[in-house]
C-alpha cells in the first residue's frame, strides 16, 4: 500500500486493533462486543500456545498409528485459523480511507477463507492417508514401551495421551462457539470447528488404537475415515459461507446457515414509519459488520424533510452495532434490479 498517497494513513492506524480502540472501521463497538473482542483475542493466543504444546506431545509419541501421525500434521494445520484471526483483526480496526472507503473489513473474509482451507486440507489429508492405509492393508505395529521403569503396552499410552491433549480443544471450542455470534466473527466460528475437529480426531485415535489392540488392524483407519468426512463437511460449509460473503451474498447469521435477522429488522422498522409507503433492503456482510442500502418509497411522493431522513438513518443504524454503514435511499418506486427479493415476496 502506498502510504505516502494516503492522506489519513497515519502511523497510529497500523497497530490499531478493535480491542484497543473499540472500533472496527468507523463502527463503534458496544461494551459487550468490546469485552467479547478482548476475550476472543486472548482465547486465540491461548489456542496457539496450547497447540504448540500438543503438537510437541503428539509428535514425540507418534508411532506407526495412522490416526496418530495424521493427528500431529492436522494439529499443525490448526495453527492457521487463530493466526488468520489475529492478523485479520489488525486490519479491520483501521478506519476507512480514500483508498478504502468501505474500510478493510473484508480482511476477515480472507481470514475465513484461510481457516476454511485449513479445515478442508485437514479433512482431505486425513481421508487420503486413512484410505491409503486401509487400501494397502497397513497393520499398525504397537509394541511395549518402558516409562519410568514400568513396561506397558504403548497403545494405552497413545490412547490416554490423545484423549488428554484434546481436553483444551473441547473447552476452547465451546467458548469460541459462544463468542463467535456475539462478535459475528466467522473466523472465530471456523476456528471453533477446527477445535471440534481436533477433539474428534483425538477421540478417534484413542478408539482406533484400542481397536488395533483387539486385533482389528483396519479399525484405526476406518474410524479416521469417519472423522475425516465430518471435518470435510465442516470445511465445505465454511468455504461455501466465506465465498458467498466475498461475492456479496445476502448477509447471513454467523454460522452462515440463515439470512441475517437484521435484514428483516431494518425493513420492518422502516415500514413502521408514518411517511413510508414501501421499503426494502439489501445488505451484505463485509466481515463482522454489514453494508446496508435501504430503499424507501414515501407516501404519494411526499418527501419528509431532510432532518427527518437524518434522524431515521441514525435510528435504524442503532438497531444493531453491525449496521453503522447504512445508507437510506428515498425512491419513487422500489428498484427491482437492486432488490431481486421483491419478485419472491410478490409470489
Amino acid at each position: 500500500m502506498k502510504k505516502a498517497n494516503d492522506p489519513q494513513g497515519d502511523a497510529s492506524k497500523v497497530t490499531s486493533t478493535p480491542q484497543e480502540t473499540g472500533h472496527v472501521g468507523q463502527h463503534d463497538l458496544p461494551p459487550e462486543q468490546q469485552a467479547a473482542f478482548a476475550k476472543a483475542v486472548r482465547l486465540e493466543r491461548i489456542s496457539i500456545f496450547v497447540r504448540i504444546i500438543t503438537v510437541a506431545i503428539i509428535f514425540s509419541l507418534s508411532g506407526s498409528s495412522q490416526a496418530m501421525r495424521a493427528s500431529w500434521i492436522g494439529d499443525s494445520l490448526g495453527f492457521l485459523p487463530p493466526i488468520a484471526f489475529l492478523i485479520a483483526i489488525r486490519f479491520i480496526g483501521r478506519p476507512p480511507t480514500p483508498r478504502h472507503p468501505y474500510g478493510v473489513h473484508r480482511a476477515l473474509g480472507v481470514g475465513h477463507l484461510v481457516a476454511a482451507a485449513a479445515l478442508l486440507s485437514l479433512g482431505g489429508m486425513l481421508l487420503f492417508e486413512s484410505a491409503m492405509g486401509l487400501w494397502g492393508g497397513q497393520r499398525p505395529p504397537i509394541g511395549l514401551i518402558n516409562i519410568f521403569g514400568t513396561t506397558i503396552w504403548a497403545g494405552w499410552l497413545m490412547a490416554v495421551a490423545s484423549v488428554i491433549v484434546v481436553i483444551p480443544s473441547v473447552i476452547l471450542s465451546r467458548i469460541k462457539l459462544k463468542l463467535a455470534p456475539v462478535l459475528h466473527n466467522k473466523v472465530l466460528y471456523a476456528d471453533a470447528d477446527m477445535n471440534k475437529a481436533d477433539w474428534l480426531t483425538g477421540l478417534a485415535t484413542a478408539v482406533g488404537i484400542i481397536g488395533v489392540g483387539a486385533g482389528l488392524w483396519w479399525f484405526d483407519a476406518a474410524v479416521a475415515i469417519f472423522i475425516a468426512l465430518d471435518i470435510l463437511g465442516d470445511g465445505l460449509r465454511n468455504l461455501r459461507g466465506c465465498l458467498a460473503d466475498l461475492i456479496d451474498a445476502r448477509a447471513t447469521t454467523t454460522d452462515s446457515k440463515a439470512p441475517s435477522p437484521a435484514i428483516e429488522q431494518v425493513r420492518q422498522a422502516l415500514l413502521e414509519l408514518d411517511w413510508v409507503q414501501d421499503a426494502d433492503v439489501r445488505m451484505r456482510d463485509q466481515g463482522q459488520v454489514f453494508h446496508t442500502e435501504a430503499f424507501v418509497v414515501p407516501h404519494e411522493g411526499q418527501m419528509p424533510p431532510l432532518e427527518e431522513l437524518e434522524v431515521v438513518r441514525e435510528a435504524i443504524s442503532e438497531l444493531d452495532w453491525k449496521l453503522d454503514d447504512l445508507v437510506l435511499i428515498p425512491v419513487a418506486e422500489l428498484p427491482e434490479e437492486f432488490l431481486p427479493q421483491i419478485d419472491d415476496r410478490e409470489l
Binding site: R139, L200, L203, I210, G211, V212, G213, G215, I227
Partner: peptide, 26 residues
C-alpha cells in the same frame, strides 16, 4: 452423537479384547 458413538465402540472393543490376547494378533 458422533463422540458418544466412538466412546461406545471403544468400550465394546476393550471388552472384546479382554478375551484372548490383548493386544491381539490379526
Amino acid at each position: 452423537l458422533l463422540g458418544r458413538a466412538l466412546v461406545m465402540c471403544g468400550l465394546a472393543l476393550a471388552l472384546v479384547g479382554c478375551s484372548g490376547h490383548y493386544p491381539a494378533d490379526p
